[in-house]
Computed example of a mutant assay.
Amino acid sequence: MSLSATDRRRHLGQLVALGLGAAGPLRAQPGGLEPVRFATNWRAQAAHGGFYQALVDGGYARAGLDVSILQGGPQVNNRPLLPAKRIDFLMSGNLLHSFDNQRNGVPTVVVAAVFQKDPQALIAHPGQGHERFAALKDAPVALIAKDAQYTWWAWLKSRHGFRDEQLRPYTYNLGPFLANKRAIQQGYAVAEPIYVKQQGGFEPVVHLLADHGFSTYSTLIEAHADTVKQRPDTVRRFVEASLAGWRRYLEGDRRAAHARMRADNPELGEAELEASVALIRRLGLVEGGDAPALGLGAMRLERIRDFLAQMVDAGLYRPGEIDATRIAELGFVKPGPVRPPR
């Protein structure tokens, strides 16, 4: 999607503010803090909350880092900035991006996985026979965005028997779903259910793909391979400060983080943010999976291999095309048990 002149100017302003424009990279700041540029893949939201918490409550500064956050959006693609070394770290959606990077020769490495489960979900109307996940393959209409049709929809077909005949395009407008009680739709489990309740006045049925075998990690922290090799202490401090920020965001006073996110994304409301946090905790996105035994942000090679094998079976990659051992560096997450969510 091309950027309008206004969007280009706004994004250029963000880049210049981060030292990514014509002025060149950021220089060391007074006080000895190391400048770090971190980009997200969407507008500020609760799913980014721990990063903002570490920014506003001094967590990054205590780690010796002067962190700037560049938010993404529907017309802002921050992904090319990482291989170009115009940013230091990138928040990416899931391991499919990492597999694609390796296939395309893009030298990035995952250094932590904030979400143990991908929030990608299918939602349905209550009372329409879609309370069981297995019944969704027989829904007459499935509203799925184009990018998903070429990724996890292939997995749904190969693993769970979904059919292309069900497909209708999802344009991030809830109207068609709300108007058709027999339809199912893709959704981000900490967002669309909130919007359905706001706009439709009912609680949708929510089926998290992760609960049915979609085993990718999500909300990944990626770094350039050169950064991992040449600045491992910076990577370690950023990862540890970010994950500590997530703990404080989920368990402590997050009002300042929400204020900063709302400044970056004025469309956010406090009630929406708090509802999203409640869903993050209830679904075990951060504190579930491997986190209770291995710590927040932890990953296991066996699970990366499992997800890769599923994607090969779905036809997204050829056998042997991706080396799972090169996808992530597992040593930056501090091990330790995680308290279960309250």
Rank of each mutant, 00 (worst) to 15 (best):
S4K: 08
S4F: 08
R8M: 14
H11Y: 14
V16L: 06
G19Y: 00
G24Q: 01
P25S: 10
P25K: 08
L26T: 05
A28R: 13
G31L: 04
G32V: 09
G32T: 13
F38Q: 06
T40S: 05
T40G: 12
T40I: 07
N41H: 11
R43W: 09
R43D: 06
A46S: 06
A47Q: 03
H48I: 03
F51E: 02
L55V: 10
L65G: 05
D66K: 03
I69F: 03
G73C: 06
G73V: 13
R86Y: 04
D88E: 00
F89N: 00
G93V: 14
D100A: 07
D100S: 09
G105D: 12
V109C: 14
V109P: 11
V110I: 10
V110P: 07
V111P: 03
F115M: 15
Q116K: 04
D118L: 05
L122C: 13
P126W: 06
P126G: 07
G127Y: 14
F133C: 02
F133H: 02
A139N: 06
I144S: 00
K146S: 15
D147M: 15
D147V: 15
W152D: 01
A154M: 11
W155M: 02
R159Q: 14
H160I: 06
H160E: 09
F162E: 03
D164M: 05
D164K: 06
E165S: 12
Q166F: 09
L167F: 08
N173E: 15
F177N: 00
L178N: 09
L178R: 08
A179F: 09
I184M: 08
Q198F: 04
L208C: 01
L208V: 04
S215G: 12
S215Q: 07
L220I: 13
L220G: 10
L220T: 08
I221W: 04
A223E: 05
H224Y: 14
R231K: 14
P232G: 01
F238N: 01
W246F: 10
W246R: 02
A256E: 15
M261F: 00
M261C: 01
A271N: 03
E272H: 03
L273R: 00
L273M: 07
E274P: 12
L279E: 00
R282A: 01
E287D: 13
G288W: 09
D290M: 05
P292H: 04
L294A: 10
L294S: 08
G297C: 11
M299A: 12
E302M: 06
I304V: 15
I304N: 15
R305T: 14
L308P: 11
L308Y: 15
L308R: 13
M311Y: 13
D313M: 06
A314Q: 05
R318I: 02
R318V: 01
D323M: 05
A324F: 10
A324E: 13
T325L: 09
R326N: 08
A328L: 13
L330A: 02
G331H: 11
F332Y: 14
K334V: 14
P335Y: 05
R339Y: 02
P340I: 04
P341Y: 04
